[in-house]
Design a protein around this nucleic acid. Structure first.
Length: 397
DNA sequence: CCTCCACAGGAAGCGCAGGAGT
DNA sequence: ACTCCTGCGCTTCCTGTGGAGG
């Protein structure tokens, strides 16, 4: 009978601490964000001397270190072990209304309030009492704050609380990656929430490299990751908006691939593979949210492509290209078969443009050798898989 | 050279949904 | 509650275009 220890030993892995690549991991040191962290600390520092901390609004694209910086600062603040300073971090994707946010805050010091049913006024009074008691300073960090449905209300409530309190205070840290979101707020809550503003710039390739190297030291076995793998992951992520989360994900998946193939290191080959599969996932995600007729069109191209020999096609570097007219005929046939009225060919051309803009197909203008003037079409992804995805996700349901 | 093919893509207009105005 | 307007998705109609074929 094998023990778990034996089983674990058999499964050798390139990882030593996989969790270090997770987006939730908070490293001891956050490189290239020293200035942001310092500025955040300056905003929160008043709390330690019994003053209200400043409200801060953090803005920046995904994977630029907003959440990590905030968590790092929160950790530092908690390490001060000041009884009168409380910090609560939450993700507003989960706590998406004034009530839920308030409830989450209350349960942090009064777990019995975890169940709903208390009126908003009761929760609010409780919060004030608790803060008032020995002049506590509360900092509420709201990640993805744009998800809160009644944000104006929430901001108003939290800021007004400061007026109702003679002792203690509440500060808000708002985090968002939506540019236009600020405009949706009314002027009053905007000016309270954005008392202090910080913009997080995307990382460049050099910085991503630094981040990845540092994390790899924790996450992987000593010599498991080749430098070329890190360089590639950094370069790819840099070209995709400098998203550190994506860079880490690539490395994580690459490592998992190495494990699956029972290799003892991670090279750029695995990174390239995981890039491809990440891209494919994204494409399939896009496909499943496409308008019905664009899906049908894509499906039609996929069926053409899976037929071994079709009457008219052109080959280019081993890839088959389909005539616009043939594709339209197939699309019309598929639509009819499913009892849908096909769109006109004029609109079909607009669909083609959209699909190309989304990177799902490639088109080429016909040149010499072909009669007339037409567009040649090919799928950007494996036809069989595209067909499968549409069949299961879309038509199957 | 002219004609035809196989489309590309602009212009106009239609029906409808969803706000703004009253 | 009502009209009015606007934008969107789409159809209809039409002119344009580059190469093949006679």
């Amino acid at each position: 009978m094998p023990s778990f220890e034996d089983v674990l030993k058999e499964q050798k892995s390139v990882f030593s601490n996989k969790g270090a690549l997770s987006p939730h991991f908070v490293p001891d040191e956050l490189p290239y964000r020293e200035n942001e962290i310092r500025k955040l600390m300056v905003c929160l520092a008043p709390a330690l001397s019994g003053q209200k901390a400043k409200n801060v609004f953090l803005y920046g694209k995904t994977g630029t270190g907003k959440s990590s910086s905030t968590r790092t600062v929160i950790k530092k603040l908690e390490d001060e072990k000041n009884e009168r300073v409380k910090v609560i971090y939450m993700n507003c994707r989960v706590y998406d209304s004034r009530y839920k946010v308030l409830q989450k805050v209350i349960t942090a010091f009064h777990p019995s309030f975890a169940k709903t049913g208390y009126s908003f006024a009761v929760l609010y009074e409780r919060l004030l009492d608790w803060l008032e008691k020995d002049g506590k300073q509360l900092v509420v960090a709201l990640d993805e704050v744009d998800m809160v449905k009644d944000l104006d209300n929430l901001v108003y409530t939290l800021t007004r609380a400061n007026d109702d309190l003679t002792n203690g205070g509440i500060a808000i840290i708002g985090i968002s990656n939506k540019v236009d979101f600020k405009q949706r707020l009314d002027a009053r809550s905007r000016s309270s929430l954005c008392e202090e503003e910080m913009v997080f710039q995307p990382y460049n390739a050099e910085q991503l490299k630094g981040i990845l190297s540092k994390r790899s030291e924790i996450a992987f076995q000593d010599t498991a990751v080749q430098e070329s793998a890190i360089n590639l992951a950094a370069a790819v992520a840099a070209s995709e908006n400098g998203d550190a989360r994506y860079a880490l994900l690539l490395l994580l998946r690459a490592g998992e691939l190495s494990d699956a193939e029972k290799l003892d290191n991670v090279t750029d080959v695995q990174v390239e593979k995981s890039r491809k599969s990440a891209e494919e996932d994204k494409a399939f995600e896009i496909i499943s949210t496409l308008p019905e007729h664009q899906q049908l069109l894509l499906y039609s191209i996929a069926t053409l492509a899976s037929e071994v020999a079709y009457k008219r096609l052109v080959e280019e570097g081993g890839e088959k290209l389909y005539f616009s007219g043939e594709v339209y005929e197939r699309y019309a046939a598929v639509a009819k078969k499913l009892g849908k009225e096909p769109r006109t060919s004029r609109w079909y051309r607009e669909y083609l443009k959209e699909l190309e803009a989304l990177g799902l197909i490639n088109t080429v203008q016909s040149g010499k050798g072909i009669r007339g003037h037409t567009t040649l079409i090919r799928l950007s992804y494996e036809p069989q898989r595209v067909k499968q995805v549409i069949e299961t996700k879309v038509l199957g349901e």
